[in-house]
Each structure stands twice: as structure tokens, then as C-alpha cells.
Simulated assay, not measured.
Amino acid sequence: MSAPHLAARGVACGRGRRPVLTGVDLAVRRGSRLALVGPNGAGKSTLLRVLAGLDAPHAGVVELDGRALRAVPARERARRLAVVSQHELPPADLQVRELVALGRLPHRSPWRSDDADGHADAALERLGLGHLAGRAVDHLSGGELRRVLVARALAQEAEVLLLDEPTNHLDLRHQHELLAAVRELGVTVVAAIHDLDLAGRYFDDVAVVDAGSVSAPAPAADVLTPALLADVFGVAAVRLQHPVTGRWHLVVDPEENAR
């Protein structure tokens, strides 16, 4: 059996010196899409930063194709891993096309940020953002900025995409359009997602981050159950099947939760 595309083995990590997660064993198959779900503050963002190599684990090792991530040169890592953080604030004086073109830096000389190869414009068009190419970054709404940052990751053409709450600030239509576009890339994706319906629809596997640990990835249909909502989120829910698509959806029971 081949090595996982991205893996954590015995990883412990935290915020500063404070431990948040311990004993994390995670294996992400090449080309699969893994959703990290769990309560706010459980450590999803912390884990993503460690998987991306932005923070060092307190213990254990992260591997890329069976190779310790810390042994991968920074430039190679930048070519192979693309990261969209939750709270990134790019320089206000950049235009959108310039920001997205920065995704090409790992592939060429560091002093070039133009889009001579057209990747930035192609990424913008893919997400329906071509009309924003000449706009200043500080004139974007929160949702527009999120989509532009994902476009930068697409322009990077990395084989692993790490997304921290990519649908944050997006309206319903753009949530689905963005995740559908990501799904069509055919790359390995690990994303922190708070919307369980989106996790079930657009991701192959789900891992639950809660109480200092991370569950083994499993098919979304097996993980996203009323028992999960009760145990992890403390709310009662029922599972209903959509009459048209046949998909199963978790629906919070307001009467049960009001008791």
C-alpha cells in the first residue's frame, strides 16, 4: 500500500506552549477531500497550521508522501502545499490580480509578481471573479476576499490544498460554487468546515476534532449522524432524506433543544 499523501503521526500541537491536541494520527489519501469538523476552539486551525508546516508540532511528525515535512525545502513545500488561512489580511494597496499572481512565486523568480503566464486570470475566472481583477484589495467585501484568497491558492497549482473555514463570510450560492470548484480540481484537500451539510456534500471523509483529539477519517455518511451532534456539539438533531436528491441531511430539532 502506498504512503498517504499527507499524514500526521503521533502529533501534539497547541497555541504557543499550551497544548491543544495530542496523539494525532491522520492519513489523507491522495486526491481525497477531508473535512475537519468540531466545536469552535477545538484546534482545527491549529492542526491545519501544523499540517501546512507553518507551525512545528510539539511532538510527532507530519509527512508528505512519506517524507518528513520539516525535511522538505521551503520552496518545494510552497510549490506542493497551498494554504488559505482564516484571518489573513493582505496589503491594502495590492490589486486583486496582483494578489492572486503571488500564488505563482514558488514557480518563478521571487521578484516577479506579474501574471505573464495567465494563471492568475484563469484562477479568477474559475471562481467567477474576473470582474474584480483590477480592484484594490481593501475595497473587497469579506466574502470577496475569501474567494480571492482561494483563487490565489488555485493559481499556485499545488497538489495539496489546506483551507481554514473557506466558506466564512460567503452567501449560500458562493459557498456551493466555491466548494464545487475545489472539488473539481482533483487535488488533495484538507479543510476546516463548520457547516456539517457542506462537509457531507463536498468531502469524501470527515475527521472530528474535539476534546484534545482527532478521530480517524471516515466516510462522511458514517460520521455525520445525530449522535455526533449530541456528543460533540450538545444539540439534538434528526436525519432526514431529501426527497429529490436522496441525500441525508442533519436537521437540528428546535423543540428538543429548547427543553
Rank of each mutant, 00 (worst) to 15 (best):
186 G>T: 03
17 R>Q: 14
141 S>N: 04
253 D>K: 02
238 V>R: 14
89 L>W: 07
194 H>R: 07
51 L>V: 05
119 H>P: 05
177 E>M: 09
241 Q>C: 14
243 P>M: 13
125 E>W: 00
21 L>I: 07
246 G>I: 08
145 L>K: 09
223 V>R: 05
99 L>Y: 02
153 A>R: 04
119 H>T: 11
130 G>Y: 00
56 A>I: 03
187 V>C: 10
143 G>H: 05
28 V>L: 11
62 V>P: 10
39 P>C: 07
22 T>H: 12
157 E>G: 01
116 A>V: 13
220 A>K: 04
186 G>H: 04
40 N>E: 01
208 V>C: 05
250 L>A: 12
11 V>M: 03
8 A>G: 02
237 A>P: 05
81 L>R: 02
256 E>A: 15
66 G>V: 07
166 P>L: 12
251 V>P: 02
157 E>K: 14
126 R>S: 04
57 P>E: 01
156 Q>R: 13
107 H>W: 12
31 G>H: 02
13 C>V: 05
38 G>N: 04
139 H>P: 08
56 A>E: 10
79 R>I: 06
122 A>K: 06
116 A>L: 13
101 A>N: 07
144 E>Q: 15
134 G>Q: 12
18 R>G: 13
78 A>Y: 04
160 V>Y: 01
238 V>A: 13
184 E>I: 07
136 A>M: 08
188 T>A: 02
97 R>F: 00
205 D>W: 08
103 G>M: 09
21 L>H: 04
34 L>I: 12
135 R>Q: 13
152 R>C: 04
214 V>G: 02
41 G>A: 12
220 A>V: 05
150 V>S: 13
130 G>E: 04
238 V>E: 15
198 L>C: 09
202 Y>R: 08
72 V>D: 00
85 S>H: 10
204 D>T: 10
252 V>M: 12
113 S>L: 14
123 A>C: 07
121 D>I: 08
7 A>L: 03
249 H>F: 07
7 A>T: 07
41 G>M: 08
94 L>E: 09
158 A>S: 15
53 G>K: 02
179 L>P: 06
201 R>H: 11
137 V>M: 07
95 Q>K: 15
92 A>S: 14
14 G>K: 03
216 A>Q: 11
46 T>E: 04
59 A>T: 13
